[in-house]
Amino acid sequence: MSMKADDNQLPFADVIGASVNDMRNSLGQVLYKLTGISEELDTQESKLGLQVVEYEVTRMQNVMNQLHGLYLIETDSLTIQMQEVYVFELIDDILAGMNGLLANKKVEVELRGEDICWYLDPYLMTNVLNIAILNAVRYTNDKICITLVHSEKGLSISIDDNGQGYPDVVLERFNNVKAGMSIEEVSSQNIGWLFCEKIASLHKNQGNAGETILDNESVISGGRLQVLLP
């Protein structure tokens, strides 16, 4: 190669930024068309097919957000804008975005606790809760329970499902991710958890940092992902 390496290098930050921008625009159109189609469908069979499409589109959106978010964290260029936000408003928006999916999958969502105003980054936390709730949609039987609790340690947001609960091997993998151990089996699920943990830990207060906990302590007997923000 006679050219200097510098001349040849792609400005990757820009390439990724432009590509994600494009994908977001596309997904916007896909989601919009899906809502239209959903209203026209009447057979049970076609609705079942649509439900798969909706689930996968939402998943794609989450994967893109977590991939891009982790890239921004790694390159120290993540935007963090803390605001005082009513947490149920965030959750309400997320559920509204999954409206069709939840209806078609016949998953009931219950909100428990008082609405609490908390100091957090609403855009990043929306991504985290989107991942957590979609994860619950995947594992639940037919119900998801989201609980807000304000304790001395801060705010706890629990997303509980009534599925089978996580097998030990999955819980172990989660704890390895959290402990910062190298991810042996890089899966989208692991990356999602890593993203959630990193975003939670960016939320700090009086020397404490946020965290995520995965266990089978669901109040409706199943799995549970808990996000703790100090």
Binding site: R24, A96, G97
Partner: peptide
């Protein structure tokens, strides 16, 4: 409002 968003989300934001 960051893309993508659905009508339901838009409705909530406006209402708020």
């Amino acid at each position: 409002l960051s893309k993508p968003f659905t009508q339901a989300v838009l409705a909530r934001r406006l209402e708020r």
